Computed example of a mutant assay.
Amino acid sequence: MTAIPTARRVARAKLVEWGWDVDDEPALDVLLVFAELTTNAIRHASKPGDVVRVLLDETDGYCRIEVLDSRPDLPLLAVQAGGNDEHGRGLLLVRSLAHAMGEELAATTKKVWASVRVADALGRPRCL
């Protein structure tokens, strides 16, 4: 499945194009959220031939990640993943890193989005 690594490379390239240091914590958070949302859409909410659309937008100190897929059902947030489970933590990670997160349903599609704070109110990069 080459779509997932390709999507990750495109997101990373977009952050570099914006002038971000992709090794800094805010960029790593955005890339992790992007990877989790995109992977969920490709693995769990699409079938071969379906189009999954992604959007990255940076505005007012936040980076919004949107992923649109062709399944109008809500993603499932795992309540508890076992210690040996390989899956089930992605949306928990997104929720812990995101300032806000949500879903928008239509008749035949779903958009899952998350907003990650990347700068303070003065526009300075976020440092933890």
Rank of each mutant, 00 (worst) to 15 (best):
P72R: 05
K14F: 15
G90E: 02
L15K: 05
A13W: 06
N84G: 05
Q80H: 14
L74W: 09
E103D: 09
K14M: 13
P72F: 03
H44F: 11
W20H: 09
D50P: 11
G123T: 01
S96T: 11
A45S: 12
V52C: 04
S70V: 08
Y62V: 09
D21C: 03
D85V: 08
E36R: 04
V30I: 08
R53L: 09
P125N: 13
P75M: 05
V94K: 06
L77C: 05
I42L: 03
S46V: 07
K14T: 10
K47G: 12
S96M: 11
D21G: 07
T38I: 11
E103P: 02
G82D: 10
M1Q: 03
S96C: 04
P125Y: 00
T59P: 02
L105D: 02
R71H: 14
K14H: 15
D73Y: 13
R64A: 15
L122W: 04
T108L: 06
W18H: 07
V118R: 00
L68T: 15
S46P: 02
R126F: 09
R126K: 13
R64Y: 13
V51K: 04
D73N: 09
V118F: 04
V112P: 04
G61T: 10
V112R: 04
W113C: 00
V67F: 00
A81K: 03
P48M: 06
P5R: 11
G88W: 03
E17Y: 13
C127G: 14
A121W: 06
C63F: 15
E17G: 14
T108S: 12
A13D: 12
R64G: 14
L74P: 07
A114K: 05
V30R: 02
A3L: 10
P26E: 00
R53K: 13
D24T: 10
G123A: 00
D60H: 15
A114H: 08
V30E: 05
R117L: 08
G19M: 01
A27Q: 00
W113N: 03
N84Q: 15
F34I: 04
E104C: 00
V118A: 01
D21S: 03
L91F: 10
A7Q: 11
G88P: 06
L105A: 05
R89F: 12
G61Q: 11
D85P: 11
D57K: 11
A107F: 00
V116D: 01
A45C: 07
H87S: 15
R64W: 10
A121G: 01
M1Y: 02
